Simulated scan of single mutants.
Amino acid sequence: MTEQTIAIYCFIDDFFLSIGRKDDTHCRLSDAELLTTALVAARFFYGNLHSACAYMREHHGVQMIDKSGFTRRLHGLREQLMALFLALGQSLRQLNTSSRYQIDSFPVAVCDNIRIARCRLLRGEGYRGMCVSKRRYFYGFRVQLIATEGGLPVAFYIHAGSFADVTALKAMPLDLPEGSCLYADAGYTCYEVEDLLAECDGVELRACRKSNSTRADKPHMAFLKNYYRKRIETTFSGITGLFPKKIHAVTAEGFILKLILFIFAYTLNQVIE
């Protein structure tokens, strides 16, 4: 745990030094220490910031600030947090010599269906989605995730639960290297998107075909699609395994921020190990 904490801090601090970011001289807690604490909370304490702050203070001598100030600064560093993940994702894409990627989504419920009418975090039917694999509805967000062949996340996109996978794919910036193959299930079937990706980005979208598809696959291609797309389910299990029984948040922005921290913490853990 100590070694991973130090590795996370070094990664964040080196990134801030490379972009020329400097802390305010009056700040008792540096930005690198604050983001390290937030990621440690997501990795080891199920997102509990209070426990992570106590650990960083007792075991690493970090001078902590009050909870409200910590939360405000963490929200203010959201862009820097995303820039960190983008830089890490770009490095992982460069190291992925197989050029094979997987895309899929997993739901994150904010509350149970019976409590939708009393939910204060979200409002509207746009957040009600259907989880086909579990044959149940949920109310919350859906996370679109792109991972390498080995299951390392390189990009993600969080949207309302009612959006279909293929709709989210159209809005999601892929930024994959030319010549890449992106494996997906039948929910991402869209011939127009496949043609545009192949023509404009040089990326081949290999979505599993439905029984009535006009572009039916040959047996060997159907086998490859089913084989390569299933590894991402293990990644989903690893990310959701970091979740507490209920993700506590006061605002929708805070809930999304915690989702970002869980995804980032899982990715760093896989890279460090």
Rank of each mutant, 00 (worst) to 15 (best):
K218G: 14
C200G: 01
A222Q: 13
A249V: 01
R215W: 08
S180F: 02
V250T: 14
L197N: 03
H159S: 13
L176R: 06
C208A: 15
A164R: 13
F223Q: 11
I256E: 11
E204R: 13
L224D: 13
D165N: 09
P219V: 03
N226Y: 09
Y183A: 03
A216T: 13
I158W: 00
A184L: 04
K225H: 12
A155M: 09
L259G: 07
G241P: 06
C190L: 01
Y157R: 05
L261I: 03
I158C: 00
L176K: 04
V203D: 03
L259E: 06
V193K: 10
R231E: 15
F236H: 15
A198V: 01
A252N: 07
K218H: 12
H220W: 10
A168C: 11
G161I: 02
L197K: 03
L224W: 07
T167H: 09
L257D: 15
H248M: 12
A249F: 02
A249K: 04
H220P: 00
C200M: 10
Y227T: 11
K170I: 01
F243R: 08
P244S: 05
S213H: 01
A164H: 14
E194L: 04
G254I: 06
A207S: 15
N226R: 15
K225I: 15
L257G: 12
E233H: 07
I256P: 00
S237P: 01
A160G: 09
S162Y: 07
A184H: 05
H248W: 11
R231T: 15
K225E: 10
A222K: 15
R215K: 14
I232P: 08
L174H: 04
L224F: 10
G179K: 02
K258C: 05
G161S: 01
T167E: 10
S180H: 05
P219D: 09
E253Q: 13
S162K: 11
G202Y: 03
N212I: 06
D201F: 09
A168T: 07
G179F: 05
A216C: 11
T189A: 12
E204T: 14
A164D: 08
F163R: 11
K245Y: 09
M172Y: 01
A186C: 12
L242W: 03
L197D: 05
R229C: 06
A216W: 02
K170C: 05
S211A: 14
L182Y: 03
R229L: 01
D217C: 08
A160V: 11
E233I: 03
A171E: 13
R231V: 15
N212D: 15
C190N: 14
N226P: 01
L224Q: 14
D217A: 05
A216I: 10
S213C: 14
I247T: 10
A171V: 00
Y228T: 05
S162E: 08
A168L: 09
A168W: 01
K210D: 04
G238W: 13
A171T: 05
R215E: 12
E253N: 11
L257W: 00
L196S: 08
Y183K: 03
L257Y: 04
V193D: 00
V203Y: 05
E192I: 09
Y228I: 04
K225C: 10
G254A: 02
R229P: 07
G179M: 03
H159V: 12
L169R: 02
K218D: 12
A160Q: 14
A186L: 12
E253T: 06
A252C: 06
T167G: 07
A198H: 08
I260L: 12
